[in-house]
């Protein structure tokens, strides 16, 4: 448990991008699945502050990037499944592009150093 805590926290603002990416890969997911997906994909390097996922999801719902729909899970539990909207897809593309631009620039700077 202690070992897990030492995982790097998510840089601020990145959480939304990660959620969008997770949803872009797998068409619909509920909250717990999104958390698991982000963790798995980043091979546990990035670690979702699990609760903070929910305000972020609400923010994205308000902005219209994702849609939510109540369905039954495989274990027959009620859960809200999220999927990307067209606006969400555009937002993701925009963010990925700007992220790459920034990291690219930083990488170049680091190479020069």
């Amino acid at each position: 448990m202690v070992a897990r805590r030492s995982h790097d926290p998510i840089p601020p603002g990145t959480l939304e991008m990660l959620v969008l990416t997770a949803l872009a890969r797998r068409s619909t997911l509920h909250g717990f699945e999104i958390a698991e997906a982000i963790e798995r994909a980043s091979t546990d390097v990035l670690r979702v502050e699990e609760g903070s996922l929910y305000p972020a999801l609400q923010r994205m719902l308000v902005k219209g990037w994702i849609g939510g729909e109540w369905k039954r899970t495989d274990e027959n539990r009620r859960a809200r499944y999220y999927q990307l909207t067209a606006a969400g897809r555009r937002e993701l593309a925009r963010r990925v592009e700007s992220y790459q631009r920034v990291t690219g620039a930083i990488a170049r700077v680091l190479r020069m150093a």
Binding site: H30, G31, F32, A35, L53, Y54
Partner: peptide, 14 residues
């Protein structure tokens, strides 16, 4: 209520 239910589910699944 939806949010509460969602968060409860998450904790239970975890």
């Amino acid at each position: 209520q939806d949010l509460d239910e969602e968060m409860r589910l998450h904790v239970e699944l975890r």
